[in-house]
């Protein structure tokens, strides 16, 4: 005779990621590292922004975890800047999670003494949806969108906007050509997330990068 039983589980899987993220945060703090996650859509300029911040700050010791579904294109780009980098391929997943970042840090520690790293950038997979639910334990969550994505990109993705500490509106040099009002993008971001700091920049021309730099690295 089979016996049927009710079993209590109460396992919150999103909370499980948050707990791992707290472990990652402790590890960063033990080594005096400031962690910055960079989220954003595909082609918004996440890699270009991180590259530019690295190039403009030769006195800061950077390291990078470069997340992508497959390929090592971004990893190679960072490697050219002579910074320690580990590529994180999710394989199928559309976002990084704290568990992957923990492994990434293990690999990174084989390339560099973590005590020598000042700032760690973690570039998430290009996606404005799923990364929202999976904080990685970084001190700042930076969202990058670009003027070329259109004026609606912010209100179309309110959850990730709400989750960000810093919001970057990139490619303002192309805004006019795209018929996009940069002020409207900035206002939409401030409307949804009044706690975030919003910066309108062009990674290409350097416009607006100083303020962002002060906020993130100052």
């Amino acid at each position: 005779m089979h016996k049927v039983e009710e079993v209590d589980v109460m396992e919150n899987l999103i909370e499980a990621n948050r707990r791992l993220a707290e472990d990652v945060r402790r590890l960063l703090e033990d080594h005096g590292i400031k962690g910055i996650e960079v989220m954003g859509s595909i082609g918004s300029g996440k890699t270009a922004l991180v590259e530019e911040l690295i190039k403009r700050n030769p006195d800061v010791s950077f390291a990078v975890l470069a997340g992508d579904v497959v390929s090592d294109y971004d990893e190679e780009r960072y490697r050219k800047l002579n910074v320690p980098v580990v590529g994180l391929n999710t394989g199928r997943e559309c976002h990084l999670d704290a568990h992957l970042v923990e492994h990434g840090l293990e690999h990174l520690s084989e390339e560099v003494d973590l005590n020598d790293v000042d700032v760690l950038f973690v570039e998430n997979v290009g996606n404005l949806v799923c990364p929202t639910d999976f904080p990685l334990g970084m001190h700042e969550r930076v969202l990058v969108v670009s003027a070329t994505e259109g004026e609606d990109v912010i209100p179309k993705h309110p959850a990730i906007v709400k989750a960000a500490d810093v919001i970057v509106v990139n490619k303002i040099d192309l805004a006019e050509a795209c018929g996009v009002d940069v002020d409207a993008l900035v206002e939409a971001a401030e409307e949804i997330n009044p706690s975030a700091d919003v910066f309108a920049v062009s990674v290409k021309t350097g416009e607006g990068l100083e303020g962002l730099e002060r906020r993130l690295l100052g």
Binding site: E5, M10, N12, I192
Partner: peptide
């Protein structure tokens, strides 16, 4: 999350306190 304001004081600055979980609560087994 779009255009929401505090119904008491009208502030736009609010945080999420619940609704961000994915929990396996219980199961029935043989």
């Amino acid at each position: 999350l779009l255009g929401e304001r505090c119904p008491e004081c009208g502030s736009r600055d609010f945080e999420i306190v619940s609704g961000d979980e994915c929990t396996v609560v219980s199961m029935e087994v043989e």
